[in-house]
């Protein structure tokens, strides 16, 4: 089993989005990749009622030494991966710090209040500026657009994992992903997930 050195221990990653965007699957895939690399992983998530159009979050604690609380303390996220851009900002407001790396999809999913015309969804430029201000590095990419090109918008989650691999902060690659996804997916879904991962890797 290969060991990896972590930039911090525990290294804290939050994957966020809106219920139904494949948040839980993304956290499971990443968790399994890191377990296979010999890491001790704790993942905390919420699902159930929160799934119905609500904000969802998975907290990943990555450690070489022990398991940690399934909730990350406030202000202690090292990486935020967002399937929806305002969710990135929401997570930063609780868990961000000036050193947080943000990898976010740029595709909005409008809250019901916005759909009803009661609230405003921020302008793209303003949102980008805010995310940039409150992160060390912002990677904002059209993951849903790319996923639609592959034939299924749900693949945005895997594209973002590809981007994460591309940044090199967690030292995993296509092979690690391939081994895990082949175990977790029915055979006919593996190729399209590999393609999505590759798209993400190339986007960084």
């Amino acid at each position: 089993m290969e060991k990896t050195t972590l930039p911090h221990d525990p290294y804290n990653v939050i994957i966020t989005g809106v219920g139904g965007q494949g948040n839980v699957l993304a956290s499971k895939v990443l968790g399994n990749i890191l377990v296979a690399k010999g890491m001790d992983i704790t993942i905390g998530e919420t699902f159930g009622a929160t799934q119905r159009g609500g904000s969802v979050m998975s907290h990943l604690r990555i450690s070489a030494v022990s398991s940690w609380s399934p909730q990350i303390p406030r202000g202690m996220a090292h990486v935020v991966i967002a399937l929806e851009p305002i969710e990135a900002l929401r997570v930063l407001s609780d868990y961000g710090n000036p050193e947080t790396l943000v990898i976010s999809n740029d595709r909005p999913v409008y809250p019901v209040g916005v759909i009803r015309g009661e609230m405003d969804y921020p302008e793209e430029a303003a949102l980008r500026e805010r995310l940039k201000t409150f992160s060390r590095t912002l990677v904002l990419i059209p993951a849903t657009d790319e996923a639609v090109k592959l034939g299924a918008p749900i693949l945005a989650n895997i594209i973002l994992l590809g981007v994460l691999a591309g940044t090199g902060v967690l030292a995993f690659d296509r092979n690690h992903f391939s081994r895990v996804i082949s175990r977790m997916m029915p055979p006919e879904r593996v190729e399209i997930n590999m393609k999505a991962f590759d798209v993400g890797m190339r986007m960084i």
Partner: peptide
């Protein structure tokens, strides 16, 4: 905790720019 300036700024940014999601 993170620097006070960051903490205050990001809270304000989220209040202004991240409309809440009521479940539906």
């Amino acid at each position: 905790s993170p620097p006070e300036e960051y903490h205050k700024g990001v809270q304000e940014a989220a209040d202004a720019g991240a409309p809440p999601r009521m479940i539906t």
